[in-house]
Structure formats: C-alpha cells, structure tokens
Simulated assay, not measured.
Amino acid sequence: MSTVSPLPATMRAIVCHGPKDYRLEEIPVPVPGPGEVLARIHFAGICASDLKCYLGAPMFWGTNDKPGGYCQPPITAGHEFIAEVVRLGDGSAEKYGLAVGDHVISEQIVPCEQCRFCKNGQHWMCDINDVYGFRQNTPGAWADYMLFPAKALNYKVPKSLRLDHAAFIEPLACSIHAVDQGNIQPDDTVVIAGCGPLGLGMVAAAKLKGPKRIIAIDLHETRLASALRSGADLALNPRTVDVIAKVKELTEGYGCDVYIEATGSPAGVGQGLEMIRKLGTFVEFSVLVEPVSVDWTIIGDRKELTIRGAHLSPYCYPRAIKMLEDSLLPMDEIITHRLALADYQHGIELVRTATGSTKVVFDMSL
C-alpha cells in the first residue's frame, strides 16, 4: 500500500514587501482545499516583469498622481516555474486529470470567471488579473511549495521534458501569443527586437509561421548567436549596424512587414515605427518602466499601421510544451544561470544588467 510522504510545516519563500524590498522568509506550507492543487517547485524563473516590479515601475506601484499599482505586498514572487504535484484537494484530481507525482504547470493568470472577458473566453484579460507572484489571491513560485487555486488553469507536463527546460514553458507561451498577434504571412520580413528569453522564444515561434525572413535585433552578441540557432535568418546589433537602414535595404526600401517589440526600452518603440513599412503590423510586448513618447502621426497619417498588444499566453501552453519537446530552442544556452533560492538578489542583478545572462532560474534543490 502506497503512502504519501509528510510535508513540512514551513517553507522558504522570497516575499515582496515593496520596491527593492524582497526578503527570504520562512512561511507556512499551504494546505489545498476543494479543487486546489499543492505542488512542490523544482525550478522557477526570473521574468523581466519581476525585475521591473522589484525596481519600482509605476505599473506595479503607482505614482504620486496615481497611487496604488498592480502589486499587492506582502506577496511571494514568481510566475515562471515547473512543479510536481504533492497534494490534491477534493475534486481536483478529476477536474485536472492529475495525480500525486505528476509534473505540472499552472497558467500564470487565475481567471475570476465572472467578468465580461472571462465570460467571453478572454480569460487572459480578466478584470481582476490575478497573476501569480503579484496578487494576494495568487502567491507565486519563488518558494518550495505553491498552491494552485480552484479556478487555476493547470497542465500536466510530460516527464520526458527536462525539468529545467520545462521552467521555460510560461515565457515561451507568452512568446507564441505575441507572434500570433503579428499575423505573419509567408512573404513577410519579420523583425524581432530584443533577444532575451522571450525574444528568442518569439524567433522560434515565428519560424513555424514560415515567413520569408526573420531578423533578430539585440545589443548582446551572445543573444544574437542564440537567435540564429533559434531560427533567425539574420542577427543585427545596433551598436555596429544602422539597423533601420539595413532592414530597408533588405526590403527594397519599404521596411519590415511585422515588427515585434520585446526590448523593454523606449528606443525599441521608436526604432520599430521608423523601420516598419506602410500598412505593417507592430506588436508591442514589453513591460516598460516608463511611458514612451513617439510621433503618433507615423502610426496614422504616414503609415496607417496595425498596432497590436500582447498580454500573457492564452491557449498557448500546449504549443509551448510541444516546441520544447521538439527541441526547437537551444535551451542549454538560453538557461545561463541556475541559482539557489537564497541567491535571489544576485539573480535579480543578473537579469537587470543582462551581462552574460539570458535566462536565470532558481534550482530549488540547491
């Protein structure tokens, strides 16, 4: 007769108390109620949005004019992860098809199921917007254990997929959604600006659309090399090349058909508006620390652009899992750092500087 191993009473967690005030604490291990799942975290990633929350971006913390941002401290941070089921609340095994010992991931947003968007099947735009690691209802993955609420969207992950690679499912799913928003056609020249982890995922996802040409842009040569191995046809560094002139040269002076902005920098927005052709599609993905000022006449009178946003990763998790199973990304070079949870300050700094790092993850076994 099989037995379930007892759980500890407390666990390690990185708790956000405010901008630049994240603390390693010992907190109670959650107990799953009806419909809930308790999972043990194996790997958890640091996202650019985690960094911007840490740095105090107004989106998360508000401003003097508009106080009260999105983050609700104190809250355990983190929304990129791979975990293992350790306890199932009443009804959750039947609801999700999960068993103790399964590898599992939960979509980063837990929908309220009551707002206009949830009722229309647009759960990723939920008015409540309970994303793991930021909201009181959804404590995150920078901890030994994590509770998936009864309304969570959970997915079983094949055990054939390496656990550290599986921690990339969430960012890759976001990349897939951004690429979908570009409506890429076979004759298109696609520019992906920013080759961090999400940009590299976008390159691989765009490759599956079969465009004429994919051009990757980044300031770091190592990331550009990874972009080429992820499916880019050309990699350009603005430090050494006039990227706007080069893209226009390659497109008979017209400019790219699709521009996906994943730099996180205001300069990436202005660059794209100049680089893109008339009637092109501009996809804005980045979480920007500050408002961006651009000449909006480019969008309207000069070029009549289609502007699309990209938020989270609706209906993309199964596709992300399949892409990783098929080894469509050079994951061993994308995951550059595996750190102990106690080294969270070092991990945040690695993401901030982007010097020698691409994807930084916490290995909970360390």
Rank of each mutant, 00 (worst) to 15 (best):
F362D: 12
D301K: 13
G210I: 05
M59P: 02
V4H: 03
A166F: 05
L161E: 10
V179H: 09
E261H: 03
I192W: 03
I192V: 15
H79G: 08
I169H: 01
A57E: 15
I176M: 04
I276E: 01
V15A: 03
C126I: 00
D65C: 08
M1G: 14
S160G: 11
K151G: 00
Y254V: 11
P58K: 10
G35E: 06
D127C: 03
M1D: 07
V351C: 12
G196I: 09
Y132N: 12
A178K: 09
H337Q: 05
V351I: 14
I276T: 10
G194A: 07
I215K: 06
Y155L: 05
P73H: 07
P58V: 13
T138A: 15
C126Y: 02
I105S: 00
M275N: 00
I334K: 06
S2P: 15
K359Y: 02
A262C: 00
K95F: 09
E80F: 00
R223L: 05
R23L: 10
I307M: 00
G101V: 03
L279Q: 10
R308L: 00
F60H: 10
L7C: 01
Q114W: 01
D257K: 04
S313T: 03
V86L: 05
W296M: 15
K151H: 14
K359N: 02
G33V: 11
V157I: 14
N183S: 14
L366C: 13
C115E: 04
N183T: 05
D65P: 01
P314C: 04
R162H: 00
R40E: 07
L350T: 10
E274I: 03
V190F: 01
C256V: 07
A48Q: 05
N129C: 10
F134E: 13
P34N: 12
S293A: 15
G272W: 02
I46A: 11
F362K: 04
D130K: 04
C71L: 07
E80I: 00
Q181V: 04
F285T: 06
A227E: 02
V283P: 06
K248D: 06
L273V: 12
T63K: 07
Q72L: 00
L350E: 09
E252W: 12
V86Q: 05
I299G: 03
R213T: 14
L88A: 04
V100T: 04
R338E: 15
L55W: 04
D187S: 13
Y145T: 06
E290H: 14
R352L: 01
R135N: 03
I276N: 08
G255Y: 08
F362M: 05
L288S: 02
P32S: 06
A267P: 01
Q114F: 08
F168C: 10
G18R: 01
M1I: 03
P238D: 02
E249S: 11
V269R: 11
A167V: 07
K159T: 07
R87S: 01
A225W: 03
R87H: 04
N129D: 15
G199E: 11
Y70Q: 10
K248S: 04
I105G: 09
L163I: 04
